[in-house]
Design a protein around this nucleic acid. Structure first.
Lengths: 190, 190
DNA sequence: GGTCAATGTTGACAATGCATACATGGTGCT
DNA sequence: AGCACCATGTATGCATTGTCAACATTGACC
C-alpha cells in the first residue's frame, strides 16, 4: 500500500486530488462539473461528497487555493523586484496571474460564495496586505487607506479588463508594458 | 387582438419579453435557466429557441442590454454633474449601477461570451468613450491613453470589489464617499 | 479475529439545455 | 373567398448535472 497506485477503494488522498482535478479542468477552460471532477480523479460521482458537502464547497476550496497561489506569486514578485519597482512588479504579477488563469481567477472573485463565510475575504486580505506594505515603503508621503483601495481597484480592474479582452484594440501590448505604463501614469507624483 | 392579452399562440413580442423575464430573474439574484425564463414569460420551454439560437445567445443579448443601460446611466450622470465633477459623478454612476445590479453586471463583463463577436466589446467601448471625453475636458493637461485605461480600470475594479464585498471592512461607506475619495486620491494632480 | 467508522459505490430523481417532430394561425397570392 | 405557406409556439424525448438514500469495502483498534 506504499505503491503510488492504491488498490481501488480508499484513493489515498482524495480531497487533494479533487482540488487538483478541478484546477486541471479550470486550467483547460471548462467550468467543471462535479461529475467530471470525479471522473478526472478516477472515482465515482458521489465520492466527492465524502469530502465536501456540496459542489459549491469544493469550488470555494479551489478558489481559496487560487487566492493563496496569487498571494505567493505577488509576494515573490514583490520580493524579487529591484528597489523602487516593487509596486510595479507586484501589479504585473497580479495581472499576469489573472491572464494565465482566467477561469480560476473569475472563480476566485466570482459570485461571492456565501458559504465561504468571509474566508475568501480574509484570503484576499492577505494579498492586499502585500500591496499595502509595498505602498507604505515606496510612497510613504502619499500613503493613505484611499490610496490602498485605489491601487487595488486599479490593478484588479486592469486584470479583469485584460481577461475580458476589452483592452484588445487599445493595448495589444505585452502585459508588462501595459501594467507599467498604466500604474506609472495613475501614480505619478505630479 | 388589440387587447393587452394576446390569444395564446403568438405571444405578441416574445423576444422582448424574454429579455425582460431574464432581467427580472437576474434582478432577484437567481441565475436564470432557460426554462425558468420561458415559464416567467408564460410560454413553453422550447419557445425561446425561435428567437435565440441557444441560451448563450439570450444571455449575450441581455448583457448587451445591460451595457446600454450602464451607458445611459453614466451619460446621464455625466451630463447632470456640476462643472469639474463630471468624472466623479460618472464613476459613481458606474459603481452604483454595478452595486444595484450585481448579477447582471457580472454577466455583462463575465466569461467573455465568444458568440458576441465583439459586440460586447463594442458596447463597452461606448461607455469608455464617455469617460474619455470627460477626461479630455476636465484634465486636458494630463490626458493620455494610459490615463484613460487607468481610470477605467480603477472604476471597473472598484465596482467589482464592491460587488464582491471585499471592501466591507475597509469601507462600509455609502458609495458616494468611497468613490469620491478613491478617485480624488488616485487622480490628485500632485 | 470482530466491530466500527471512514471512505467509496450504485441507483434513482428532478432540473436543465437542447434536438426532433408537430400544431396553429396570420399573411399574401390567386 | 379560398388556399398554401411559414413564422411562431408546443410536445416529447434524451443526455448531463447536482444531490439523496442505501449499500459495499476496508483499514484500524479492541
Amino acid at each position: 500500500m506504499s505503491q503510488t497506485e492504491k488498490s481501488t477503494y480508499h484513493h489515498g488522498d482524495l480531497r487533494q486530488s479533487l482540488l487538483d482535478a478541478t484546477l486541471a479542468l479550470l486550467a483547460q477552460g471548462e467550468e467543471p462539473s462535479l461529475r467530471a471532477v470525479a471522473r478526472h480523479a478516477g472515482v465515482s460521482p458521489m465520492a466527492p461528497y465524502r469530502h465536501y458537502p456540496d459542489k459549491d464547497a469544493l469550488l470555494t476550496a479551489v478558489a481559496l487555493r487560487g487566492i493563496e497561489a496569487l498571494h505567493q506569486a505577488v509576494c515573490a514578485a514583490d520580493a524579487a523586484a529591484p528597489a523602487g519597482r516593487g509596486l510595479l512588479a507586484l501589479g504585473l504579477a497580479y495581472v499576469r496571474y489573472a491572464a494565465d488563469h482566467p477561469v480560476l481567477f473569475r472563480l476566485m472573485f466570482g459570485p461571492a460564495r456565501p458559504r465561504a463565510g468571509g474566508a475568501i475575504c480574509a484570503a484576499s486580505e492577505t494579498v492586499r496586505q502585500v500591496m499595502l506594505h509595498r505602498l507604505a515603503v515606496e510612497a510613504p508621503d502619499r500613503f493613505s487607506p484611499e490610496l490602498a483601495v485605489g491601487c487595488w481597484s486599479l490593478i484588479h480592474g486592469l486584470a479583469l479588463l485584460v481577461i475580458d479582452g476589452l483592452l484588445a484594440e487599445t493595448d495589444p501590448d505585452p502585459l508588462a508594458g501595459l501594467v507599467e505604463r498604466t500604474l506609472r501614469t495613475m501614480l505619478r507624483p505630479a
